[in-house]
Write a protein that binds this DNA or RNA. Sequence first.
RNA 1: GGCCUUGUGGUCAAGCGGUUAAGACGGCGCCCUCUCACGGCGCAAUCCCGGGUUCGAUUCCCGGCAAGGUCACCA
Length: 578
Amino acid sequence: MDYKALAERLIPGNYPALDHYEKKYPPRDLPKGAEVTRLAPSPTGFIHLGNLFAAIANERIAHRSGGVLYLRIEDTDLKRKVDGAVEAVIKALDYFDIKFDEGAEIGGDETYGPWYQRGRAEIYRAFVKHLIEIGRAYPCFCTEEELTALREEQTARKEVTGYYGKYARCRDLTEEEIYANLDAGKPFVIRLKSLGNPEIKHKFHDEIKGDITVPENDQDVVILKSDGIPTYHFAHAVDDHFMRTTLVIRGEEWLASLPIHIELFDALGFSRPRYGHNCSLMKQDGETRRKLSKRKDPELSLEFYRKEGYFARAVKVYMLTLLNSNFEEWYQKNPDAPLDEFKFTAAKMSKSGTLFDLDKLNDISKNELSKLSAEEMAAFLKSWAEEFGSEAQKAYFNDEEKMRRVLTLCMGIGGKKRRKDFTTASQATEFIKYFFERPETYENFPCGQTDCVCILRQFLEAYRYGDDAQAWFGKVKEIAAANGFAAEMKDYKADPASYKGSVADVAEILRIAATGKANTPDLWTIMQILGEDEVRERILKALWEVAEHWWGENQTPELENALDEMIAHVTDKPGEDR
RNA sequence: GGCCUUGUGGUCAAGCGGUUAAGACGGCGCCCUCUCACGGCGCAAUCCCGGGUUCGAUUCCCGGCAAGGUCACCA
């Protein structure tokens, strides 16, 4: 068989000698130990947590070692192309401080480009042609139907499916048959002529999994599709060789095709990169768990986390704790160190699939946000609100001084201990809502309506804006005592039966009246921030609310009079000492 | 089904022949306290199963079992 002539017929044209490419893409000049890693997404523009997970690992390994991280776009499958996708990927990863050194749309050094696989057709074809010339690749004319039939036949016989050995029909086509098919214009693909035997297994060192056993490949895989575009396997070999990747960190799903890649690198005469196959992020799905999928888990898209307003650093910290088992301990000891100082290693990556744990992420989020200053928090919330918030929420930021005071209080800044109420921007914005909008609903007032009315009324009478926290609380205690509630918690605990409740219940009524919520930070401070007029109006509004309920349940003329009198009394009262 | 990978509390996990089997999240309880949050203290909960090897196995070996991945002209 004249392979040379066949190659020319199959892939016509002049291609440079192979060492042309070796010279054009020379080994990189990097310090010893420096790793070249890459991210190679399809241009769908959709990034989810699983992608970020892998991206962080690649980025850390490259940059920890003084190496290079580049972005290659696997756009061999035209159906998946989405406009602006590459920019979206870069932007999404930049949010997590993942910066590429080179690659698609990055600019700068183009030595190892093109970065889009579709721009690399010439290189692929040159090497496919070479493989045909040396008899390691051949044309296959089998139709899709024939391949399907073959697979069914193999399945029925309980044999391994695929195009290999005696089933590789086109492998043994005579020269005459090949040219006859070609002359007849039959479409064809180019397949690798495999020399392997899967019975033979080799030890292989995986940077993450450790020593594993890998059988030889015997599948005559397609390397060039009928449209002239290479398959992933072939492009991987050519690209990672000429882009001089040193360490391929990729998902565990590629482990099964490692034998193919090994044979391909060997057949092409390329030295192999090292590999690390990382476990994927899993999700509990009913009884079982499965790997995160972009189809089934849209809520795991990075976009979802941006909308919720998760703090980028928190997500990154969480990913790192999953990625390297010793990270969490390091971070406890070095809470303020830059994340990049952690010595990230492939060897410390988990060998088994990890379940995504939202509780843990939320916990980390709280801790990370509690480290911010009021100004930083305001900036974070504001940028979130501008993109995702309602009009009302955007308006929260009009009064910067008020926002600063609100956040200072809600984060416990200046106190002995920081509060940790905030997990995400959307949750935090909702949390501080009552500072900016009057409550429309009230969490249940805890005691009888009569007491509520009395307590609110008495508070309105006693309230003075100028009181300090102590004086203010003293008045609350007095009101408690006057209504049969224990002024001191100790007294109440010692003898709960003699009281209607404690000062805590009284404070709760005031809290609900002022904020609509039963649980808030320090009430006195809240009232100071709200301002006197606003406090009075809110208490009054609550008073009305409670009184109306009371009235509805106890309709008598006497009560009506009492109520009118009370409301009138209270309404006249404020302003006196202002 | 073949092949590959992985099995320590509910989750993430330390551990590398002898430990009361770390720690974190979550759960529960107590303390602090005007509520919440924070903080402090404590509790419950784990070595997939069966054989070996060994004075001794969570740790080493073999065999099961389970889970995950993969078997395309998708990546």
